[in-house]
């Protein structure tokens, strides 16, 4: 036997797959957003309102990743976006290969904005590059303002932090200032939006950011 020095990260094969997928999607002008949060933070509800507001201007598709069931994909289809349900087969996260399979199965020709609704989990999804152009995470106020301290990698990796369910924040003693300070300490470049998917408060800023991100993505492809 001989010794071969690799000096490669363990997930090198995934990182290569992710880079290839990102490059392909850039060429096709489709911005893929990896949406991550705990179970019940309101990922699907956020998408429902976002799709209702933006589907007049953009062709939107959603990849719903769950361990089981297809309830989320059904909800998304009801508001008029293309959706596919991907089962991760017990895995707690999506990787680039699973994302590519889902996208190709659904077909994303002509899609401007695609969301990957990752498995509800604040740990594992942060560790795997899915090939998405942007990473967005949601933290809902009932979860507490201490989450950046407990799940730092998710906050470090995300481009955007959405603090959701602001309409009920007072019942949970959620300290916005503390939460934002903790998140910024981990990731000084993180963009933060505060909103309620139920009342629609705060959606304007989030959707303005989305419009800008889609435009930038398409510009970069030219």
């Amino acid at each position: 036997m001989k010794i071969i020095e690799l000096k490669e990260t363990v997930t090198a094969s995934n990182d290569r797959d992710a880079e290839a997928l990102r490059a392909e999607m850039k060429e096709k002008g489709t911005l893929l957003i990896n949406l991550m949060a705990s179970p019940g933070a309101g990922k699907t509800t956020l998408l429902e309102r976002t799709i209702r507001d933006l589907s007049g201007d953009y062709n939107i598709a959603v990849l719903e990743a769950d361990v089981d069931s297809s309830v989320d994909a059904e909800r998304i289809e009801k508001v008029g976006a293309k959706a596919i349900q991907v089962h991760t087969g017990g895995m707690c996260h999506m990787d680039a290969g699973m994302t590519r399979n889902g996208l190709e199965e659904m077909g994303y020709e002509g899609v401007d904005l695609a969301f990957l609704e990752n498995v509800g989990n604040l740990i594992c999804p942060a560790e795997f590059d899915t090939g998405a152009g942007k990473k967005v995470m949601i933290l809902s106020t009932p979860e507490g303002d201490d989450k950046p301290l407990k799940y730092p990698l998710m906050f470090t990796e995300s481009d955007v932090l959405i603090i959701s369910k602001i309409d009920v924040a007072e019942y949970f003693d959620f300290d916005f200032e503390k939460c934002e300070e903790r998140a910024k300490k981990l990731n000084p470049n993180i963009t933060i939006f505060k909103l309620s998917s139920k009342t629609g408060e705060g959606f304007e800023a989030w959707e303005k950011w989305l419009r800008g991100a889609v435009a930038d993505w398409k510009d970069a492809a030219k």
Binding site: M1, T11, S13, N14, D95, F128
Partner: peptide, 28 residues
């Protein structure tokens, strides 16, 4: 639980290396 996911990727990365380097068996 993400150990399982990482192990899958490690196996895939090594499989790809084996093809590139014409490796028939990997030891340590």
């Amino acid at each position: 639980m993400h150990e399982m996911g990482i192990v899958l990727h490690l196996a895939k990365t090594l499989d790809e290396t084996a093809v590139e380097e014409k490796i028939t068996k990997i030891g340590k």
